[in-house]
Amino acid sequence: MKFPAVATIIVGAAIALMIGLGIWQLQRKGEKEALLAQYAAAADLPPVSWQATLPPGDPMLYRRSSVNCISVTDWQTISGRSAQGEAGFMQIAECRTGGAEGPGAAVAVGWTARPDHPQWTGGVVDGMIAPFGDRIKLVSDGAIPGTKTLARPSPKDIPNNHLSYAIQWFLFALIAAVIFVLAVRRKQRDAKPHEGAAR
């Protein structure tokens, strides 16, 4: 079976790219596992000072910290679970802070069954640093009046899908190779009767 040169080069390049992406995902898997292990050990490390500008990928995630909420400037309500596993709402106070703590802080102060905001005007909150979109938040160890304690943040909540992505890319490469070989074989098989008729 002869393979057409141009088509083979194009398909071969595509397959090589897919394999390369699969290998890259395997490398990312190792990096993610190392980071998650670092996060898992963070809870046992000494507390750190709060920094509102801390990026979500910073190793200080899942470290213990505290925030002095001078006043509440706004509220956010998102889905969340209580420490008992109840589904409901996480109440997040947007706090005004001062000094070394930076310009402000998002503080998850408790869990509620309904989305109504609790009546809380501020105070010192101890808790754990956790991701919050492209920001971070402090998840309180306890609960303010009118709420229940939130489920403790865990690095296990961070997805690590790189292995499945790698397998997908390798499968795409295999499927592309099989389809190309079958297409070339069929084309050459279909061409044989015409060659015989021409004789």
Rank of each mutant, 00 (worst) to 15 (best):
T112S: 15
G104H: 13
A87C: 04
G123S: 12
E86L: 14
D116N: 12
M90Q: 15
R28G: 04
Y62G: 01
L36S: 08
T97A: 03
T73K: 07
G57I: 00
L21P: 04
A16D: 06
P115H: 09
T73A: 08
M60W: 00
P55A: 13
I70L: 13
G85Q: 03
G30M: 10
R81A: 06
G127R: 07
A87I: 14
W50P: 01
S66F: 06
I78P: 00
L61F: 04
P55T: 08
L61W: 05
M60F: 06
D58Y: 07
G30C: 01
A40P: 00
P103V: 02
L35V: 15
V109M: 09
Q119C: 01
R64K: 15
A14I: 15
P55G: 06
Q91F: 07
C69Q: 02
Q84F: 05
E31V: 03
P47Q: 04
E86C: 00
P55W: 10
M18T: 04
T97F: 08
W24L: 03
Q25S: 13
T121D: 15
S66P: 01
E31L: 05
K32M: 14
T77S: 14
W111P: 02
A93Y: 02
G85P: 04
A100H: 09
G88L: 07
F89H: 13
P103G: 07
I15A: 03
G22H: 07
T121C: 02
A13V: 12
Q38I: 03
S82T: 01
W111E: 11
V11S: 01
M60L: 09
L17Y: 14
S65N: 05
W120H: 06
Q27R: 13
G110P: 02
V67F: 01
D58S: 14
Q27V: 11
A34M: 11
A37I: 06
N68A: 02
P115G: 11
E31G: 01
W24V: 00
Q38D: 12
S49H: 10
T77Q: 09
V72W: 01
